[in-house]
Design a protein around this nucleic acid. Sequence first.
DNA 1: AGTGGCTGAGAAAACGTTGTCTGATTAGAC
DNA 2: GTCTAATCAGACAACGTTTTCTCAGCCACT
Lengths: 337, 337
Amino acid sequence: MGRTVTRSGKRTTIVDIARQAEVSISTVSRVLNGRPVADEVLATRVRKTATELGYRPNMVARDFRRGVTSTIGVVVPDLANPFFPHVLKGLAEEVSAGDHRLLVVDSGEDADQELQLVAQLAGSCDGIILCSPRMPQSSLATLPALGVPIVCTNRSVGALPFGTVGIDSASGMRQAVAHLAELGHRQIGYLGGPGTSWSDGLRREGLSTAAADLGVKVSSTEAGSTSDDGHAKLPELLAQGVTAVIAFNDLVAIGALARLRELEMDVPSRLSVVGFDDIPVAAFLGPPLTTVSLPKEELGRRAWAGLHQQLETGQVPQEELLPASLVVRHSTAAPAD
Amino acid sequence: MGRTVTRSGKRTTIVDIARQAEVSISTVSRVLNGRPVADEVLATRVRKTATELGYRPNMVARDFRRGVTSTIGVVVPDLANPFFPHVLKGLAEEVSAGDHRLLVVDSGEDADQELQLVAQLAGSCDGIILCSPRMPQSSLATLPALGVPIVCTNRSVGALPFGTVGIDSASGMRQAVAHLAELGHRQIGYLGGPGTSWSDGLRREGLSTAAADLGVKVSSTEAGSTSDDGHAKLPELLAQGVTAVIAFNDLVAIGALARLRELEMDVPSRLSVVGFDDIPVAAFLGPPLTTVSLPKEELGRRAWAGLHQQLETGQVPQEELLPASLVVRHSTAAPAD
DNA sequence: AGTGGCTGAGAAAACGTTGTCTGATTAGAC
DNA sequence: GTCTAATCAGACAACGTTTTCTCAGCCACT
């Protein structure tokens, strides 16, 4: 066995292995990629040499040659919003199982930046997942030109050739309204999300149809998606005499709860509160929050499934809608009357 | 001007542009990279052709040639833990400003998987940021062999050649203890974090020295890092007659608060509670939580700064410690005595 | 024994880009 | 007017890998 013949400072490559093991480069490549190699003697020699030299494949070169990036881009509006990390978790699990990597960017809730980021990502990704994109439909329409498969979550995309996975917020909302109606509430307030939010649209729609069906009166306001928003806008609803409030999400509900505490209005005896999302702290609030639980991680998983299918078959998958379900805790009760 | 001469199905490359604009490939590259080109006529022709053909550079090829990835890997123990998304946010901001991309992986709090992930990441990143790594020192010691610059946050790494950025939790803890002592508390409980956590070590250390200095008695227990843990372990501390409790983080504090509510023990009149982290909901809890605020986004920014420096100069930066500061809200008060 | 088919390893091309080197062209100096 | 120096565009190699193609060797069959 000859001396080590790797080139001086550089990282070891398959060329080094080939030299050292006295086989051809192609053979090294074949062995290392697990493709059929007849001569088991060669194969073991190559493998042995590879470990000896501490070979680690140059992923960039590999991806370059293969013409792929093995990378999936994800755009989220705000990482600090507890909703998205959960989606990301479900996504990350599946994506890495599929031997891909996850490139995550935060658009800071900014529609323009979102568009830019997607364009930039497109250059270095095999596919992109857009979580609850805030950009207008017109911007969305420019994305197919990027030539990268795209899946949107929580957003309808019209006729655009994107895979989409959403959550049936409307149904969740109907469950919430039904629950409150059953408790005897006749006037419900809605602390709505940002107007640009597709989910908020779904929820408002579910709210108004359910309310009409059940003979419940609705007052609503556009709050936002943070606790501050809930805290700020709750009084507006209170002034209209509602006996229960549904919030756009748990964060908003938490803000509302905080305001109610300041006002010394007991929950649920003076006012019932329902959230959306079921973030982990929801169960630990005072009182534990009744909320519509959304399958966040599942959303991530399905988004990947859709993108994966698109990458494999080139076919844009069917639109998907995941169910939401109400979790009743202790922030809702019959109205004081 | 001749017909378009791009090759059939493929994406347009600089070769296509060169053909079409009737210049050399090198010239195209030079123009597109903004390197000095004497003949402005050529330059504009190239640029025009590039836009006409809708050229988008092949990032993989570029990175391959340049021998870099333009990608930074980040390993976090758990994305769903509200601490990390904030670190990530600070990090993402700076990293993308530096024309790099962020590869995020979640180790699921699993030390073994963490090690594997880092090894895998090393292949496709210019540098790695390890957020609060859970792996033992012995595993950490194997990482330099990967040949990739690494920065650790919230972890001391001994003599290992890693940049490190931490938060001075000990000082935060001292502030918390001083605050409680000043209010008159003489027996304090600590709902500690996981034993593997470096931050927890720092906090315990700060706790015991501060307590000794101020003549305060301490009972402590190992809870964990979730609300469930706080909820489960609080009674243990209560049994020892403490009048105030400091939690490993806000999540644990929230669990404790929930348990106290069940026990109908008012906060802060019956028991004072202090958290750590200052997550956004902390201000909206009942009562608003007194907590040690940690500069999470700054931590991310400094981690990048350290890694960046290491990439540029090859020098491992000095260890850094960021200050923590107590935010007094309404979950602390004088003991009932 | 000679030939055809088949197997499998090695040689070489290709991927798209950057950067070095070469050679031409031009300006300037004597 | 000729020679040198300077400048700048173009040719081409290189990056590490995969993959196609070539060709040597072997077995089986005539």
